[in-house]
Design a protein around this nucleic acid. Structure first.
Lengths: 240, 240
DNA sequence: AAAATATGTTCCGTGTCACGGAACAATTCT
DNA sequence: AGAATTGTTCCGTGACACGGAACATATTTT
């Protein structure tokens, strides 16, 4: 029964849609009656909200979601550095962590011009075709990195690197320079530079700046990204 | 059974703690066996995470939480204006909406110096002793406002206004000026100035700047707050 | 060292309550 | 008017959630 309830919640996608009863029934492959009863319960618990025959995700989920430990602590610690980075570059700034073989974006801040990126706070993307992902990958366990390189490589755009050899080279460069690059691999027309964040032991996150390809100046962005990542790493290592 | 699962999730508080099985059993007043089974299910669904006999909130909740419609849309639209406001003031900036008779904070950005505020993203506070809350209250239905004024007024600090007459005066001033003030009513030593955000129909949110009392200069903050709120209101009214 | 207390975990018989088909009500399409 | 689709109520059946009792393991007390 929990499974069924979770299946209902899992129907919802980033487009922020509100589904009708029949729609949920179809998507979950559950009988209409069952969905009806479960939705009523979920609404009662605040996990769903109802408005005239449509169900949306409920405010309680937002509240619970903002309590999730690793995410919340990290965001709180990182925010000032992300602000610095944004102020220095005035471009879209990301903070992400690794979860399985994907990136989960914990924060994303931007100004008035919004890039058409697939990244979203709370969203997941392949490690291999995002700046943040590559930075995480380059500084993870060697075993894990090899495992990812061995598997099939995802593709978000025609420029996504799906050749393991080329990707390995890129990762080695990142390991040497401490910076990971990504050019139109996640979204056409957007390039990205990223740096890993450490807590003293291992890499715990990475942050990046995404820039329209036309005005991508790595030489100017690199110091800012590096500075932010080092600053955050130092904070995580010492204080708290 | 959903109720019991929800009760488990509801145990978790902002302090980001991880609870043990026995602790959860005590907090929920459910038999240990039941909690054990439910937690196993919740872990399987990603709603909880387990690490050596302790359970934390799971990453899935973060992902679901960031999909909740009103919150997510509003945050996305507001972020650039919050950035502007932060850059102009370099103080802690809030964005909140009304939910029942409380504020829910949707976003909070700050620099390296963190104020000891009770506000948290995803957290709830009384409408009556926060800047954002007062701004929301001042521009809500008159009926609702009266209803809140009639009820008992919450108190977060010794300075929280618990006298309905004084609060009504403050609200009327906010209605005239379009700005709401709060001085040490949410946290000692912190003052706050807030402005409502409209979507063309009604008030949908409010944003505020919180400042250590020592350097609180309303005359300089007011234009920045007002500008940000108006800019966001204009965007919500027209575009999307 | 033994006993006591605490932890998480497995087992399993009982009974509840989730289940979903069928029928109903209220719209909306044709 | 009829057909189709919506959300909703009803209710008999049976699966499975329930939780007490017993167990395993670690930690503390005597």
């Amino acid at each position: 029964m929990l499974d069924k309830a979770a299946a209902i919640l899992d129907c919802y996608r980033p487009d922020g849609g509100a589904y009708r009863l029949t729609e949920l029934s179809a998507r979950t492959a559950l009988p209409k009656t069952t969905v009806f009863r479960l939705c009523a319960d979920l609404v009662r618990l605040g996990l769903l909200e109802r408005e005239a025959d449509t169900y949306r995700l409920g405010g309680k989920l937002f509240e619970l979601g903002s309590l999730v430990p690793r995410r919340h602590d990290l965001r709180e610690a990182a925010l000032p550095f992300l602000q610095d980075l944004f102020e220095a570059t005035r471009e879209t700034v990301h903070l992400g962590i690794r979860e399985g073989d994907e990136v989960v974006y914990v924060e994303r801040i931007h100004g008035h011009d919004v890039l058409p990126l697939p990244s979203r706070v709370g969203g997941r993307l392949p490690l291999t075709c995002t700046g943040v992902g590559k930075a995480l990958l380059a500084f993870s366990d060697a075993d894990f990195t090899e495992q990812v390189l061995a598997g099939p490589l995802a593709r978000l755009t025609p420029h996504s690197v799906t050749d393991a050899v080329r990707l390995r080279t890129a990762i080695e460069q990142a390991q040497v320079s401490g910076l990971a690059y990504e050019e139109q691999e996640a979204a056409m027309g957007v390039s990205c530079i990223a740096a890993p964040v450490f807590d003293g032991q291992a890499v715990v996150a990475a942050l990046s700046v995404a820039v329209p390809r036309a005005r991508f100046r790595p030489a100017q962005l690199a110091p800012a990204v590096r500075t932010a990542a080092l600053g955050l790493s130092r904070l995580l290592r010492s204080g708290r």
